[in-house]
């Protein structure tokens, strides 16, 4: 683990996300608690387990009729839920940033990449256009994009998935946030590009002391990359463990997920299929607080 973990940047207690529907209220996240220090915290689970909703709820990005309830979501001691929408805007991007899953849908298709990065930067600082331009070039270089001048003039459709994702990361990191929430940042990328993107984020955690919430469905990746892992099932945390001990995880759900992966070193005729136990979704959420 990097730096000091006892200083918690973010403290989430008893978070619920609810969506009223025709068939009663649907609970997407049910009583989740965890803290984030200057570390890499992984959240894994299947689609529909509420991992993305947890990330969005922290930034209060869930729109009505969705409801977010929590005892508190403290960012360095200040409750985000008590803030006005105006104050919240100063938090988003500047103190907590989020990289979304698909760069195709998060970049504006009719603006050049340069204009978008410059706009994002100038929203949060009083820099001149020229300053913002040089800073943007620097950031693009920092996420190892070759020929940043050309990329600044290009439109998002001219970029590959991997480049788009790196551009998103560059844009999110210019205001130097304390926390980065990365929602499946590499699932659309190849293994080789994936490594590069992870290395960039890793460097930022180490050098800037940033806190990283890494949301993913890829168990091996999380075991490899993160410090601590929360495993979510049906809106609850079923298990919390250190990432390097993920392969010794105890909960039958985690075991089931691990066993359902094909492995090169251990060939099998049939893969194990996860047998779901209704008790898993009824059990109380495990706390991820330190």
């Amino acid at each position: 683990m990097y730096g000091t973990c006892d200083v918690s940047l973010l403290d989430v207690k008893n978070l619920w996300v609810k969506f009223p529907s025709r068939h009663g209220v649907f609970d997407a996240v049910r009583g989740v608690s965890f803290t984030l220090g200057r570390e890499r915290l992984g959240i894994v689970g299947e689609s529909g387990s509420g991992k993305s909703m947890t990330g969005r709820a922290i930034l209060r990005l869930i729109r009505p009729p969705g409801i977010v309830e929590a005892d508190h979501i403290n960012l360095e001691g200040v409750d985000l839920l008590q803030k006005s929408e105006k104050d919240m805007r100063a938090v988003r991007g500047e103190r907590i940033s989020m990289v979304m899953q698909d760069p195709k849908f998060s970049l504006n298709p009719v603006m050049t990449i340069g204009d978008q990065i410059i706009e994002a930067y100038r929203l949060h600082s009083s820099a001149s256009k020229a300053e913002a331009y040089t800073k943007s070039l620097e950031m693009l270089e920092a996420v190892s994009i070759r020929g940043p001048e050309r990329v600044m003039r290009a439109y998002p459709h001219e970029m590959s998935g991997g480049m788009g994702q790196r551009i998103m990361i560059a844009m999110m990191l210019i205001p130097n946030p304390e926390i980065l929430i990365a929602d499946e940042p590499t699932s659309a990328l190849d293994v080789s590009v994936q490594r590069q993107v992870l290395d960039i984020m890793d460097k930022l955690v180490r050098e800037r002391g940033m806190g990283l919430i890494f949301i993913s469905h890829d168990l091996n990746l999380v075991a490899d990359f993160c410090d601590r892992v929360l495993i979510m099932y049906a809106g609850r945390i079923v298990e919390v463990c250190d990432a390097d001990k993920l392969h010794d995880a105890q909960h039958p759900y985690t075991r089931g997920l691990l066993n359902s992966l094909p492995r090169l070193d251990a060939p099998r005729d049939r893969l194990e299929v996860l047998k779901r136990d209704p008790a898993w979704s009824d059990a109380e959420s495990v706390s991820g607080r330190i």
Binding site: E46, D218, R270, L271, E272, V273
Partner: peptide, 14 residues
């Protein structure tokens, strides 16, 4: 697909 569903589909294909 999710890894748990991937296992089901790969078994089906086999």
């Amino acid at each position: 697909l999710d890894v748990s569903v991937q296992a089901e589909i790969l078994n089906l294909l086999a």
